[in-house]
């Protein structure tokens, strides 16, 4: 392989990370917040899809894509709130409710989304951060949506807030030991309710990115399981918001391997290269599963037997 080819592939990986990672990032951050409070919300795939269609519809009717992003967040927050409320009831399993919420979210989205497959809504604009490079390909790869930056900022804030604020401490305590939190007079249910609703908000915003920026249109196959993958990324990132960002970027970049290699003439074995993100995730999970560190980082209240 010549240098030019390697450069093309590397630029494609960079571009892929910039373009594809944002929805993963938002869903993973939302799930990270929810799981830190001691609850699992598997319904974020549905939230993502509902967010996508809400954003598209709002942008179409109002003409403002940013209003669409906000509406998507609100739609996601409502789904999260339903999840948070139902799980508060006695003897309710949050995993099962999550799956129900996933089906509910996609169902509502497909039902109301029918009317929005054909129309074209105003999309989000991108920021050109690569103009200084003077290289057309690099400049294209560095077309960044503001939401990506927002996502990174939210991750930084979450990382700081978990360690340094009272609210962060309450969330972590609810997640690690509910009895301890109750002993302190904290309403664990309220903390979890808010954390699930806020997590839903983030996932909804991730959906807005899908329909309003990349790939940038609404159709029923839009998410194709990205919400579920993002939930898995949280475990992969071991409940650390900064590692969620890294995992999302890595996932986006490796997802670009398949198309990028074919575009430079490495055409054999594209099924294998298309599976690269999953293979990589598997390898890292296997590599890290054995460490004691990993078990210590999991919120203590997370369990499927509750």
């Amino acid at each position: 392989m010549s240098d030019g080819v390697i450069a093309t592939v590397l630029i494609a990986l960079l571009g892929g990370a910039m373009r594809v990672s944002t929805p993963f990032m938002f869903v993973a951050l939302g799930e990270c917040l929810t799981e830190k409070s001691g609850r699992v919300n598997l319904g974020l795939e549905g939230t993502l899809v509902l967010g996508a269609v809400t954003a598209y519809a709002t942008s179409y009717h109002s003409g403002s894509p940013w209003l669409g992003v906000f509406a998507a967040g609100c739609a996601g927050a409502s789904l999260g709130a339903i999840h948070g409320f139902v799980c508060k009831l006695p003897r309710v399993n949050d995993i099962a409710i999550g799956i129900a919420m996933m089906l509910l979210g996609t169902g509502i989205a497909f039902f109301f989304g029918k009317a929005y497959i054909q129309p074209t809504a105003p999309r989000l604009e991108s920021l050109s951060l690569g103009a200084w490079t003077g290289d057309a390909k690099l400049a294209t790869a560095l077309q960044i949506n503001p939401l990506l930056i927002v996502g990174v900022l939210i991750a930084l804030f979450m990382w700081w807030a978990f360690a340094n604020t009272r609210w962060g401490l309450l969330i972590r305590m609810s997640g690690d030991s509910a009895p301890a939190a109750r002993a302190m007079g904290v309403s664990v249910d309220l903390v979890r309710f808010l954390a699930t609703a806020a997590g839903g908000f983030l996932a909804g915003v991730g959906g807005a990115f899908l329909s309003l920026y990349y790939p940038g249109s609404w159709n029923q196959g839009l998410s194709s399981g990205q919400g579920l993958m993002a939930v898995a990324l949280v475990i992969f990132a071991r409940w650390n918001p900064l590692r969620c960002v890294a995992a999302a970027l890595l996932f986006g970049a490796t997802g670009a391997i398949g198309p990028a290699l074919q575009s430079v003439g490495v055409t054999q074995g594209y099924y294998f290269f298309n599976a690269a993100p999953y293979i990589l995730t598997l390898l890292i999970l296997i590599g890290s599963a054995g460490s004691k560190q990993a078990t210590r980082e999991a919120p203590g209240e997370l369990s499927i037997t509750k």
Partner: peptide, 23 residues
């Protein structure tokens, strides 16, 4: 040609289109 591997994969189709234009 870029094969995406399935009939409906919007994100990968967008990636494939971008890769072709980049090439």
């Amino acid at each position: 040609v870029i094969f995406t591997g399935d009939w409906s994969l919007p994100v990968r189709e967008a990636e494939a289109t971008n890769a072709l234009v980049d090439a």
